[in-house]
Design a protein around this nucleic acid. Structure first.
Lengths: 245, 245
DNA sequence: CCCGAATCTGCGGGTTTCCGCACGTTGATT
DNA sequence: AATCAACGTGCGGAAACCCGCAGATTCGGG
């Protein structure tokens, strides 16, 4: 059995190596990569279908690397090992996991024993293991109060990028009013909307404020922004100069 | 000689402990704290005037901890040890370092030898040691193209928080137009301003866009935002309900 | 003392946001 | 077939934003 470790911090990489060797005596080869790109390459060359993957890395973060790995080999078991449990990551992962694939998500703050268990469960038993803290997020994101639709998340990203209503409309093939509709829902759900009863003193610029609280609540984060920015740049090249109606 | 290590990641903490013991044989006591709060307490109890400090931690990040430590004992030598070299951190630190104090800033990606040298230089020789990458930022921030005035940085934070022009004016005791003036300068310096020559197609909402590029360039970051948000909340309590002219 | 340079301020107007009101489409449920 | 929820669209208007123009203020030299 081969296990591939993708993690940029050398200390953590060494620690993971220890943990894998300790938890999986049936594993005879441990491969190590220091970033997403190298990880993809190693996974391709050696036919390694068990991966422990850090999230924030550069170049190529864990989510991107996982996506290409899963695209080539959907039955790969991937255990994500991250510092944070924020919505941007959770949403990003649940977006790319192939149906039926085994994967896991444990926090770096978890105990050695938790990590050990997760390694065995995911790599040997083909089970999905998700830390309780992360699990909480998934519930919320699917369900009730703070749960966005995909389309709402879309405009959230767009205004976070600093796009104009009109540009968003063009990009998403919507009318101006529809974009603004989604924005209203977004403001509502983020608890940013100000019913101007009595004193019409608008303290906040809703647009910017929405971005801020999303950042503070980690609905979006730096790497999500970077990714979105690159997508945007690509779109601007292609369709950004189209004819205006 | 006593050295205090403040670092939340246990692996990194252990590594730092090794490094300190190896580089400083004259050090007979190594104290360890896992977050800023504990760090402040330990520094106060034991009279430790040599500190190795991580930046991102919670509760209480490194900058805040350093500030209270330096307030109580301005001659403390502090070596900052961080993952990132972004402007928000550098600006935050250079804002709080007492005149004449010895401090250092090395990246976690630095080699063992670099760390060793920095430890000896700062703790024994009372020299300031700042990594080259970080140094680059300092130059830029003081000088030319991407260098903001303090007042410009101020409005940047304010729009990042999602405040209205009018609210910013009230908060900073300025007229509306002055705020908008500073904003214009900001847009200019961030390279966001769009001379609408020919095609007046405004692609970006300058306000939001400014925040985005600041985030992408790490002129502001998550923890800076959190701090600013708390300041804002306090201000809203106190002066936010004042009489309107 | 007068001269820039930097900053603060008011005015005016073009553009963008924000949002209530109203109506049509789609798709799933009953 | 009827209904209901979710989503897309147009119209119109109040507020906010962006910014050129121009007149004040401050402050450090020559």
């Amino acid at each position: 059995m081969k296990v591939l470790i993708v993690e940029d911090d050398p200390l953590h990489r060494a620690y993971l190596g220890e943990a894998v060797r300790g938890a999986l005596p049936e594993c005879n080869t441990v491969l190590e990569a220091a970033d997403g790109l190298a990880g993809e390459r190693l996974a391709r060359e050696h036919i390694s279908d068990r991966v422990v993957m850090d999230l924030q890395m550069s170049p190529r973060n864990g989510i991107e690397a996982a996506r290409t790995i899963w695209r080539e080999r959907p039955d790969t078991r991937i255990l994500f090992w991250s510092n944070y449990a924020d919505e941007a990551n959770v949403r990003g992962i649940s977006r790319i996991v192939p149906p039926g694939a085994a994967y896991g998500y444990v926090l770096k703050s978890a105990s050695d024993e938790r990590l050990r268990l997760a390694l065995r469960s995911v790599f040997i038993e083909d089970q999905c293991v998700i830390d309780r803290e992360v699990r909480g997020l998934q519930q919320k994101s699917a369900g009730a109060v703070s749960g966005f639709t995909d389309s709402e998340y879309e405009v959230l990203i767009d205004i976070a990028l600093g796009l104009t209503d009109r540009t968003i409309a063009r990009r998403r093939n919507l009318s101006l009013r529809s974009v603004q509709n989604r924005l209203q829902q977004l403001y509502e759900k983020l608890g940013v909307y100000q019913p101007n009863d009595g004193d019409p003193e608008a303290r906040f610029n809703l647009r910017s404020r929405a971005v801020t609280v999303s950042l503070l609540r980690k609905l979006v984060n730096h790497t999500a922004l970077e990714r979105a920015e690159m997508d945007l740049a690509r779109w601007l090249e292609r369709d950004g100069h189209g004819p205006k109606p």
